[in-house]
Amino acid sequence: MSSDDSAVLAHGLVKRFGDFTAVDGIDLEVKTGEVFGVLGPNGAGKTTMLNMLATLLPIDEGSASIFGVDVAKNPHMIRQLVGVTGQYASVDENMTGDENLRLFGMLLGLSSKQARTTASELLERFGLEEAADRQIKNFSGGMRRRLDLAASLISRPPLIFLDEPTTGLDPRTRGQMWDTIRDLVKEGATILLTTQYLDEADQLADRIAVIDHGLKVAEGTSVDLKSQVGNSTLYFRLADKELVPQGAAVVEAVLGETPQITPEAAGISIALPDPNRAADVLIGLREQNLEITAAEVRQPTLDEVFMVLTGKPTDSGDGDEGDDAREVDRSDSQGGATRE
């Protein structure tokens, strides 16, 4: 049975709020042990989909199972299998970090002594022991997220939902969160995460589904998706503004195309057919003794991904290609597996 190694198996999920269809028939399969990223802009239906799978919202149409347990029929069992970390820290503002974790521990069936031990273990593991006795309202954004994630781990859940785990975090805290997520995967957790950032999905996810207006518009590894999106861009700045024409000449000589120039910043940018060609350009610059102060190969932005996948910018249209993608998903041969 194909669902044996599936952590999540969902077919044709639909959620409507009045006239508005937030999720419009999404199929999803997350394999046990993988990190599955759901990528999409605000309002794409990511959180709604996650909430349906976490039993926080009733499923209007379609079916879903988690480790073979039907979500709609056995919500209490699903809640024993899934740890949810929400977009907005779902911890109690008026309680301390320690009290929060003890409360959740007791709610998960630990004795008050076990809850105390688990709380202090988790606080230490997440580097929060200094803040154990501080109320959450005095926590920084990053500390809240970490406490929130710690709270989701009390039950040692095999499946963890992370709803935009790093939105609004500074780069350093973001990196810490990513490391924590990787460690959880090493421990055997399956992770379903939503994000607005392509680089986050790229860093963490084994497979990615791109969602827009409640529809899945693409699915695959980040390499698959990026190959659909195409070129990356090389951008560099020269130390000496006067030498910009020479720099541009090097680019033309290497890639055979005319670069874009921002003269004020002595910046030059060029689309790359293959990211590896960036090195060729940089070697060319070195050979000409042109000194650079900055260089980066940029990934396509989420907007660019959407432009390519839907043919439209992120904020308009419902995407004809989206409908096509849905048709493809529906004809997926693993169709009936959840219903058993």
Partner: peptide
Amino acid sequence: IRKEVLLVSNLIIPASERQLR
């Protein structure tokens, strides 16, 4: 932090080892 996370053996209990109520 990572070291400590890795030190704890069963941070996750797999679905198959769980008694669901």
